[in-house]
Design a protein around this nucleic acid. Structure first.
Length: 427
RNA sequence: GCUGAGGUGGCAGAGUGGUCAAAUGCGGCGGAUUGCUAAUCCGUUUCCUGAAAGGGAGCACGAGUUCAAAUCUCGUCCUCAGCGCCA
């Protein structure tokens, strides 16, 4: 039987786990933990009982075998043996029920936070670590969606006509810019040792449960009707879960990959006017950084992933800032998380374009991904994922930050070579 | 989608109701020995529970028959070969 999560870690460090989870300021998490602890105790007692019954059966079975070989009567033994299957079955059934419910509880308990995650309640308590570029407000700029439509490089109306709200069509030079950003980011990461992966766009439930917050099944993911398939919400999900149930060799770590995929998200919720256009979409392309490494190396990798994303923003000449997410605002999966926010000169505020997480062993325990340390000793790996570039949001940043007074869009120098030499998007 | 064959330990590959955690070969780890970069020999090589001794589970997955299942029955998934369809 595969163990999706390692209960031993929680049993042995219960007080520590509890203290840590309290920092998330969500009492329901502690309630779940407490509930698991008592349920786990019950399970272990029942497990002992069940194993004893099985042991008894094994002994009788062996006796029957011996008696038969010697030609002795087995009637008395058989009578005794026949009483056992029902008892065992009942015990096993209850044990299994407990296993299922315990697993469900465990799966709902979030990751252990790292010490340097700032304590806080919500997004307001996140800490801005650094800013880059000149953040100048210019309310006179044209909304990026309107400008793209005007320049005939995007068609929202017809996309909505055939697919509904949250969909868009890129055309001409803006579609080309989408590809250019992909090509540039992949080259940037390749230079830093990332190998490119284009993963499946659908995954089954088991694989998906290992990498995501379970609530996402209801609020984020698209399910294929009548099949055990979900459309991926990010390349992180297939790239990480592809290693499910594997024991990696130490020499094969770290696994450093760039995932390119089209992503699908339902993202149920209402959004204001300024979220229209290329911001909150049901479908978008993204290049993602994925690292699978030894535990002691994950923090260093985390910093490198942030560097890689910052470098891209700089290359595209977009002012940005790096934010460290606080304990109350961090998601279920991450132990520590940075966001990068790019500058919107039209609105005069930063908007989220990147999310960069160290998931430590959270995904590895659920997916059962280990590596072999020296000899026979095994240990869970750490997984990290970080946006390198989410294309539509970067398109928005470019359209706003490189909009000219003439109503055209200047192509950042770094991208010209991927744009068939074009330097400007205009009518 | 149809037809046929098959899914056994890290790999290869035996095993058709109790003698099977499972022969044999290769590999990994630990040790012994040897004066020569090797050979040989011994041990070990999954998961759960338990302080330990021990106990339990595990032959794709799930259910069933049986005192007893890798082995028999049913369902599901996957792989291979052939056919069909197809960007």
């Amino acid at each position: 039987m595969i163990c999706l999560i390692d209960p031993k870690i929680i049993r042995e460090n219960l007080e520590f786990v509890k203290k840590n989870l309290e920092k998330r300021r969500d009492p329901s998490i502690i309630a779940k933990l407490d509930s698991w602890v008592s349920s786990d105790k019950e399970w272990r007692e029942l497990k002992q009982k069940t194993d004893d019954l099985r042991a008894k059966r094994n002994v009788i079975t062996e006796n029957i075998k011996q008696a038969k070989m010697k030609g002795e009567s087995v009637d008395a033994l058989m009578t005794e043996a026949k009483t056992l299957p029902d008892l065992i079955k009942a015990s096993e059934t209850k044990l299994k029920e407990l296993e299922v419910s315990n697993k469900a509880l465990l799966m709902n308990i979030p990751n252990i936070l790292q010490d340097d995650v700032p304590y806080g309640k919500d997004g307001d308590d996140n800490v801005v670590l650094r800013t880059w570029g000149e953040a100048v407000k210019n309310p006179n700029l044209i909304h990026h969606g309107q400008l793209a439509t005007k320049l005939n490089v995007a068609d929202f109306e017809r996309a909505v006509k055939i697919a509904g709200e949250g969909f868009y069509a890129l055309k001409g030079d803006l579609a080309l810019l989408n590809m250019a950003i992909v090509a540039y980011s992949i080259e940037l990461l390749a230079k830093r040792g990332f190998s490119l992966v284009i993963p499946p766009a659908m995954m089954n439930r088991r694989a998906y449960e290992g990498v995501t917050d379970l609530n996402d099944f209801e609020s984020v993911m698209y399910k294929i009707d009548g099949e055990d398939h979900y459309l991926i919400a990010t390349a992180e999900h297939p790239l990480t879960s592809m290693l499910m149930d594997e024991t990696l060799e130490e020499k094969d770590l770290p696994i450093v990959q760039a995932g390119y995929s089209t992503n699908f998200r339902r993202e149920i919720g209402k959004h204001g006017l300024d979220e229209r256009g290329l911001f909150r979409l049901h479908q978008f392309d993204k290049v993602e950084q994925i690292v699978i490494c030894k535990p002691e190396e994950s923090n260093a990798w985390h910093e490198k992933l942030v560097e890689n994303a910052e470098e891209l923003c700089k290359a595209f000449e977009i002012p940005y800032r790096v934010v460290l997410i606080c304990t109350g605002d961090i998601g279920t999966v991450a132990a520590k998380k940075y966001d990068i926010e790019c500058w919107s000169p039209r609105e005069g505020k930063y908007f989220e374009t990147h999310s960069l997480s160290n998931c430590t062993t959270y995904q590895a325990t659920r997916l059962n991904i280990k590596y072999r340390k020296s000899g026979t000793e095994k240990e869970f790996v750490h997984t990290l994922n970080a946006t390198e570039v989410a294309i539509p949001r970067m398109l928005r940043a470019i359209i706003e930050n490189h909009q000219t007074p003439q109503g055209t869009i200047k192509i950042p120098q770094a991208l010209v070579k991927y744009m068939m030499g074009k330097t400007e998007i205009k009518v």
